[in-house]
Design a protein around this nucleic acid. Structure first.
Lengths: 338, 338
DNA sequence: CTGTTAGCGCTTTCAG
DNA sequence: CTGAAAGCGCTAACAG
């Protein structure tokens, strides 16, 4: 239909001005007489003018695109993070180009390169690779890390207090009388898992309860054998409670417990890190360490936007506090022991 | 750090060739001697060359960006759709810029304009506004509609057979003996809701069961009064079964039933359109019309990619079949009646 | 096989 | 307040 896209030159000609004046009028910067502006605006509207973002980006050496990389869009947690980011970016008239990396460094790096190629205004990521930060910094693109920290260059971040949350969860269990608490954590070197395992240990230390290392189970992301490992924990570790340090592991644990016919909390107590919908719907509801996921996304976006405006400066790190929500899945251990 | 981004000219100079030759070497199209190519590639690598996407887009009048607009990223269904799209796009070395429109025409149009500005290779959307299609067509950008159809211009689409699914759900209930089946559908003019309500009616017609219009309840997206309307249905319509035509409505219905202490399926049967994780975790599990959501996203992306390569031609519409999965939430109505 | 040339559409000094 | 001019980085004829 459209023989040729309408350009600034077209509307300038139509309104009888130069391209420069047209540019000023349509962007609202620089002096333009009211009359000229009105004619230009009318012409643009009439001709259905849509500015060419590439041309502008080429000239200005920066775009309104923000690159976002998350681990897995199919995981409710990351989906909500992305939802918060998108919302805030949209309100600020920026665009989100979203890449999932399945926690694979190579995928992440490819995404990052694309963002550099697009002259992204900035990048928000749940990092998987500490080299990405340096690459981005070298190309002068701003970074905000969210959920976890990894970059070996200073950058903004918004994270949850993982240690505090895990400590709360563990103390809650300890107070109920549990002495053999299994912990299920992802098999990564991420700050999230380190913090959560750390909080678990700390609570034990402070409570004077020794930690049996067999109770600490690391399970890879998307590992097919998650349930097997949980079964093994149950068989060999005799835990009276389980702390699942992320929502897929909580789901796996819950499924194993159900399959084995173990009643919550009578036979085993369960606490999860990260609250997702099913946890309030099952009976009993799951006790959780809730995190403000969408809000984390929003804040990450705001931090990035601020950084883009203000340029360099001290890194801002926002540490949000998680909340222990006690529901029915936790209770005292069986008096009998085992 | 980087004083100035390294450009094609830099690496051409470094390798002692012209920019054109460098361009050919790095893109692998056109003749380049093996020696020149090797030198160029080495130089690019050494200097950390990242091509400038805007410059390329400006020249070629098209990018590798695909615009995607979904209704609500916070809804599991749309998140999975996006996940499937992203995965396929990534494998084909394209980028997804993702916008949520909250089923608001104005938001959608803004997104669309952005995509046009970016010279997107194409757009995939769960449409909310029939004007978007025309606008995109005018600017010569390819469209794939997913989940529902709306555009007033011919375009590719991948949708589920809503009528078939709803008919299956309703027949299942009818066969169990239900005669008063409530249906909860979104308050839209979308093909999804029309198809689902249509299938519900059709099953009744074919079964020779009259439909009481009071049993058909339309509830706006994100309506705060969803539960109120469901309560009203229960109070005034005396349904023995409820068919929730999308997953948020299923969740709302389930919550209302639980609050009122109604047992599934003894007091009321429940069927949902769209299978999400909680539906297998609650007790009893929810009988659903399952749709291959991630696969729908993948197919939409493949369709778009094919369209971008092949240019114009007959619209391809993929109609996927949903599956009835019977779980515990459906059973015969109470013999007593009410 | 390679280099020259000519833009793509926009913004931004800089004179007027 | 406005226009002329230059150029962002890349690609695509085209002529050698």
């Amino acid at each position: 239909m459209a023989i040729r896209a309408v350009t600034l030159a077209d509307i300038a000609r139509e309104a009888g001005t130069s391209r420069s004046t047209a540019s000023r009028a349509l962007n609202g910067r620089g002096y333009v007489s009211a009359r000229a502006r009105a004619r230009l605006l009318a012409a643009a509207d009439r001709m259905g003018y849509v500015p060419n973002a590439s041309a502008r980006t080429l000239k200005q050496k920066t775009s309104r695109v923000v690159g976002v990389v998350v681990t897995d869009l199919g995981n409710e947690f990351y989906a909500r993070l992305a939802a918060g980011i998108e919302q805030t970016l949209r309100e600020a008239d920026h665009q989100m180009v979203l890449v999932a990396d399945n926690s694979d460094s190579e995928q992440e790096l490819r995404g990052i390169r694309t963002f550099i190629a697009m002259r992204a205004a900035g990048v928000i990521m749940t990092p998987a690779n500490d080299a990405s930060g340096a690459l981005l910094a070298r190309h002068d693109v701003r970074i905000v890390e969210v959920d976890r920290r990894l970059a070996d260059v200073p950058c903004d971040a918004v994270v949850i207090d993982n240690q505090r949350g895990a400590q709360d969860a563990t103390e809650h269990l300890l107070e109920l009388g549990h002495r053999r608490i299994g912990i299920l954590a992802a098999d990564t070197d991420w700050t999230t898992d380190a913090g959560r395992v750390g909080g678990y240990r700390l609570a034990h230390d402070q409570g004077g309860v020794p930690v049996d290392e067999r109770l600490i189970v690391r399970i890879g992301f998307h590992a097919p054998d998650a349930e097997t490992k949980i079964d093994a924990l149950l068989d060999d570790g005799s835990p009276t409670a389980i702390f699942a340090a992320n929502n897929p592991l909580a789901e796996a644990a819950w499924n194993v417990l159900r399959r084995r016919g173990l009643a919550l909390p009578r036979d085993v107590s369960l606490v999860a890190f990260d609250d997702v919908p099913w946890m309030t719907m099952v009976e009993p509801g799951i006790t959780v360490i809730a995190q403000p996921t969408i809000e984390m996304g929003r804040r990450a976006a705001r931090l990035l936007l601020a950084r883009v405006d203000d340029g360099v400066g001290e890194p801002h790190v926002e540490l949000l506090q998680p909340t222990l929500v006690v529901r029915g899945s936790t209770g005292p251990p069986r008096p009998s022991g085992r």
